[in-house]
Amino acid sequence: MTSNLWFLKGIKKGVLTEKFPAEPPEEPPLRPSVMEGAEYSECPVEAIDAEGKWIAGRCIFCRRCEPHFMPTGNQDLSEVRNFSPDAIRKSFYIYPLDSGSCGACNMELLSIFNPQYDANRLRIFMTNSPRHADALLVMGVRTEGMENVLREALDAMPGPKVIIAMGACAISGGIIGTMPLDKEKVALEIAGCPPSPYTIISAIMKLRGD
């Protein structure tokens, strides 16, 4: 088949891209999403503290605290810290780094480019080299073999070195291990196990100050 015919087939399918983030997510997943509730003390990853406060970056959405805590569907699971949006360009190039993931975070990151989300239209791109990156996005727990690779990627990045921790593993170690990053240096935490494409996109936009 010639590329022309493919083009026509593509057109025939119509526009799949949703209006998000201008409009609310069309089909937000229930888990992960913001959890609300009270009184549960047996969380396997201490995502509910002694005061009963739920900590997004630790939660692996295992459902054990349900129905004491329930997912709300709210996809806003990110937190920007110590960061001024003026420091970055509006076209945003991400260099992903898998420090020790289960693979699901990798898939959800890839999914932001699915036609339903089309992150490119929001000027979010992926780059193959840390030298061209506006941000280093780290997924997974700390592993011995990736420690040097992570350090080298950080060294190779131009300033300001924006670091994104994506997923419970990268933010807190989750249920799997320990976090691979210095928490103080992280500009954006995207919670979830794994965070949904809606969560990832809205987090990056929050970081950019959109």
Binding site: K9, G10, K13, L16, E27, P29, L30, R31, I60, F61, C62, R63, A104, M107, E108, S111, F113, N114, P115, Q116, Y117, C193, P194, S196
Partner: peptide, 25 residues
Amino acid sequence: NMLAALREKVSRIIGNATGHRYMFG
């Protein structure tokens, strides 16, 4: 892109049926 869109649709079906797009928990 067509296959990526289909994958996304399957993920949503799985998510709605099981409460998690990757069936965790």
